[in-house]
Simulated scan of single mutants.
Amino acid sequence: RLKEKVEETFGCEYELVTEFTGLISWSRGASIGWHSDDNRPYLKQRDFTAVCYLNSYGKDFEGGLFHFQDGEPKTIAPMVGDAVIYTADGRNTHSVDEVTSGERLTLTLWFSRDSSHDEDAKLILLLEENVLHKSNNVPWSLLPLPASDNMYWFSPHQASNQDIGFDIRLGRLHALGFDVYYSRDMNFGSDLSELLMEPMQLARRDQLLDHKFVNVLHSLQVGEYVNLYDEQVAQFYFWEGCKSQAFTNEVQSGKAVRLSRSQSEKITRVNSVFLKDTKLVETVFQSAGQCYFNLATFSAAITEWEDYSCKLHKEILLSLPQWRAHQAIYSVKFDV
């Protein structure tokens, strides 16, 4: 219905396609300066934008006001249930004030006249390749599917290169007290941009956790599941009230090992490439405070998440023929 409203409002002669859908969390300190939504070469296919507000200014967060550079209204105070639609080009240059407290949540959809950028069609193709045509089909090794690398880089003032800023995947882990470790040998003079989608482990302080993840997105998705798994978990793998001795016991039991010098050097090298501005990381992401890591909760959450992934994998297998036939992703009901 939202796409139809955009088509009606702007008098589109042809049906639009959804180019990208983003569920965006703006934490304290997050903001964005004046820009248009097609301001990068790889975004020129974007014609229209719809921003849906999932919570309210003044109740759920402070700051985060939306401003248009020209025209009316100049300023929009987000309220849950409201949506703002506009052209994605320079006619609607806009900005968002810094969020000073709370969390600002938006669901943003970008639409294109170019059907070759249809998000659903691309996702269906990826799912076919990853779910149907892989012999070693382990459900939790296939999800989540990554976006392009440039979607994960955060830099101030919309800088067009990666000389400043940080990768938001590593940034979030770092703010929570974790680093990532890759066991394979790295040529420090080579391009490491593909590294983050390779198998990895998490490190905390001077300890390397035993569990191996398919990629950094896998570790982040398991972390999100921890929030659902245990109400006592503040965020990611932290558990308030857990004593630091618990982590020491896990190290002694073999679930974590002390980092060697060479392992620490690899972590430092990765951080130098993907975390160029740690102060900016701390501004954008808020830490969980003085909480302690609980590996028992972490391990249980991994088991729960893998069970969920298996269930989701089966649903995708059943739904994919319908999605492929209609070239659209939607909820498919099955007779029980």
Rank of each mutant, 00 (worst) to 15 (best):
T9P: 03
G11Q: 11
Y14D: 12
L16R: 01
T18G: 07
F20Y: 12
G22P: 02
G29E: 03
A30F: 05
A30I: 00
S31D: 07
Y42R: 09
D47K: 15
Y53V: 03
Y57C: 05
F61H: 00
H67G: 08
D70M: 10
G71C: 09
V80N: 09
T87Y: 09
T87A: 15
T93R: 14
W110E: 07
D114T: 02
S115L: 04
H117W: 10
A121W: 00
L123M: 06
L127C: 04
L127R: 02
K134N: 11
V138R: 10
L143H: 06
L145A: 02
L145V: 06
N150F: 11
Y152G: 00
F166D: 00
L176M: 14
F178D: 04
F178W: 04
Y181H: 15
L195F: 05
R204A: 13
R205K: 11
L208N: 08
L208W: 06
L209S: 09
L209M: 14
K212A: 12
V214P: 03
G223E: 04
V226H: 12
F238G: 15
W239Q: 13
S244D: 10
N249I: 05
N249Q: 12
V251C: 14
S253W: 09
K255L: 15
R258M: 06
R261W: 03
S264T: 09
V270F: 02
D277H: 00
T278G: 01
E282S: 14
V284Q: 03
N294Y: 08
T297N: 15
T303E: 14
E315F: 01
I316G: 01
W323C: 01
S331D: 12
